[in-house]
Structures are given as C-alpha cells and as structure tokens.
C-alpha cells in the first residue's frame, strides 16, 4: 500500500512538473538566431575555402556539427576567440595546415600582363573582378576580400596579393608592448599566468 502511494505520488509529481516544464518551454521559448547564422556572422566571409569548405557558410554549418574552430586563417586568433566565446569551448591555436594568419591583402592585377582569359573572374567568389574575354581585367579593391582564389587560376601569373596599406583614416596606434609581454615572449614561463599575458590578463 505504502509502495503504491509512493509510486502514485511520484507519478503525480512527475506529471505536474512535466506539465510545468512543457508549458514553460512553449510559453518562454527563446527566439534566437540559429547557431549556424551566429557562427557565420563571426567568420570573415572571405569565402576563401582555406578551411577546406566551399565558403564560410558551409564551414559555419560544419562547426555547428562539431568541426574544429581553428581552421580559418583569414579570421585568425580573433575569430577563434570569438567562436570559442560563442560556443563555450576552449580556444585553440590556428591550425597551420590551413594556412597562417596574415595581414589583410587585396588582389591586384598587373594589367599589361593580363591576357583576358576570364579565369580569375570565374574564380572570384564575390564578383570583385571586372573584365571580359580578351579584355584586360581589373580588381575592384573595395570588394576584394583578399581570399587568394584568383591567383592560382591565372595562366600568366599576373595577380599579386598586396597588403592593404593604412591610410590616415584607417591608421591607428599600435598596442604598446608591456614589460611582461616582451619577457614572456622570450622565455618559457614558470608560472601559468605568465603565459599569454597580453592575450588574457
């Protein structure tokens, strides 16, 4: 009898709480961005494919499915950090297999060497190259994401990736180096907190 009462009581409780939870999950449903979109918005959108996915969105989808977050060289450490924050995982160093982080670059066509083959136009993921068959092509610098994809197809190798030079408008002060940074860069660290002082103080 007692056993039965206990079971009944538990079942009743389970039902009540289940009902409350079910109600809450419907009533207080959080309408958030799907995680893929959030990840996608953190990626640099160069569409360079260095992550071995055909664009940023596919990589975002892959990350949502558990792919590693350190395969995006154009985004670099900042993107990895942001992704780690978003997903609540430990940031990892950039996977060198997929390339190294470098300064922002823009493609420039050496125009007298261009033979007008349109191969780079087809390669450009953001339609930033202008030109027609047998006509000289040129890169719209403001649209170029610096993804590198047009360099390989060029049969005459006339595309250079040029670092974007700062202008008076875009220039800003560098981060001052601190004693701890300069020392930590040189030495192994005895104390764990010495590591990456600059990165996470």
């Amino acid at each position: 009898m007692t056993l039965l009462t206990a079971i009944l009581a538990l079942v009743a409780l389970a039902l009540v709480f289940g009902a409350i939870l079910g109600f809450a999950s419907i009533r207080f449903k959080v309408e958030g961005n799907p995680i893929v979109d959030q990840i996608d918005s953190l990626l640099p959108q160069t569409q360079c494919g260095q992550c071995s996915y055909p664009g940023c969105k596919p990589y975002a989808e892959a990350i949502a499915d558990g792919e590693k977050i350190n395969k995006c060289p154009p985004g670099g450490e900042n993107t990895i950090q942001a992704l780690a924050d978003l997903l609540g995982v430990e940031p990892e160093p950039l996977d060198a297999e997929h390339g190294e982080e470098s300064v922002t670059k823009v493609a420039v066509i050496r125009e007298d060497e261009c033979i007008g083959c349109t191969k780079c136009i087809q390669a450009c993921p953001v339609d930033a190259i202008l030109g027609a068959a047998k006509q000289m092509h040129t890169v719209i610098a403001s649209e170029c994401t610096g993804c590198d994809l047009c360099v390989e197809p060029c049969p005459v190798d006339c595309i250079d990736m040029v670092p974007v030079a700062p202008t008076v408008q875009t220039w800003s002060w560098e981060q001052p180096s601190t004693t701890a940074d300069s020392i930590a860069a040189k030495n192994d660290n005895l104390i764990i907190t010495d590591k990456g002082r600059g990165a996470a103080a």
């Binding site: 004693t179 020392i183 040189k186 030495n187 192994d188 660290n189 005895l190 104390i191 010495d194």
Partner: peptide
C-alpha cells in the same frame, strides 16, 4: 630569477 624576469627592475 626563476621566472626569468629582470630582478633589479
């Protein structure tokens, strides 16, 4: 010294 930091500083 163990932390390889400038002692005097």
């Amino acid at each position: 010294k163990l932390r390889k930091r400038p002692i005097g500083f």
